[in-house]
Write a protein that binds this DNA or RNA. Structure first.
Length: 246
DNA sequence: GAGCCTCGAGATCT
DNA sequence: CTCGAGGCTC
């Protein structure tokens, strides 16, 4: 696979902005595919940090964007500053760093500076980080343009810290691995994940012998079948809540 | 090397 | 959600 290396090319800027604002990353509602396209095409956003410089006058240039949408978007942009290090890291779009890896790095290192200054060997001490991923992270933070972008985000007030792992250790679900499938009655996937993480548990995406519990909701997928075959404990939402509180 | 797991893309649904 | 590719662990 080939990768375009011109960071300034419009298609690259658009992709970065779109990914940064996406649900798993900074979750900026109102800044989806279409808005990202408009902002980058019009030169209102030439790099990620420009998102935080947008104001009413700039947004008013965009067709079909009235006072209400503008107010709401600006509010959502402001709210995104507090999403925390894990989401921010994922949002930066570092190769091989998805939500899981970003989460691990965030809780292991605690601040963006610690990650940016870590060398290959230090990064590899984290679970799931091998030579390839570590190399990719080092490469990203070696680029002066990336360090500058981060500095600009920081100046804009974007928070770049995370509670360290220690703060969460000793939870009731310490050492337990969970997999979610189907739709839960009252919790979203993110909320269920957060509940488990907060109790010291771990959430992965595929069922294996190492899975301790499968949390199944309505219309579960093949993960439930696999869990039954492997004899893994199945929980519904109520049982998960009980386990967390137990 | 085997098995596990994440990433990332594409399909499905709301 | 599923699934393949490929990185990581043991």
């Amino acid at each position: 696979m080939s990768r375009c290396t011109n960071a300034a090319c419009p298609a690259q800027v658009y992709e970065r902005v779109r990914h940064f604002a996406s649900r798993g990353a900074m979750d900026i509602e109102g800044l989806g595919d279409v808005m990202a396209q408009q902002l980058t095409e019009r030169g209102l956003v030439a790099e990620i940090a420009d998102i935080y410089r947008l104001d009413e006058a700039a947004l008013a240039q965009i067709p079909r964007t009235g006072k209400k949408s503008i107010e709401s978007l600006l509010r959502n942009i402001a709210a995104s500053k507090g999403r925390g290090l894990a989401r921010l890291l994922y949002g930066l779009g570092i190769r091989f760093v998805g939500t899981q890896t970003a989460q691990i790095l965030a809780t292991d290192f605690g601040t963006i500076e610690a990650i940016a200054d870590a060398d290959n060997a230090q990064l590899q001490r984290s679970e799931g980080i091998g030579p390839e991923v570590a190399g990719s992270v080092v490469l990203f933070f070696k680029q002066p343009a990336n360090r500058e972008m981060i500095a600009r985000l920081q100046r804009a007030g974007v928070q770049m810290t995370a509670p360290k792992r220690a703060a969460r250790a000793g939870g009731r679900l310490e050492g337990e691995t969970f997999v979610l499938t189907g739709t839960l009655p009252t919790l979203t996937r993110d909320e269920a994940t957060e509940l488990i993480l907060a109790a010291g548990g771990k959430v992965t995406s595929s069922v294996s012998k190492k899975t301790d519990y499968v949390v199944a909701g309505d219309e579960p997928g093949s993960k439930l079948t696999k869990a039954e075959r492997l004899g893994i404990s199945i929980l519904d939402e109520a049982a998960l809540r009980r386990l967390v509180k137990a």
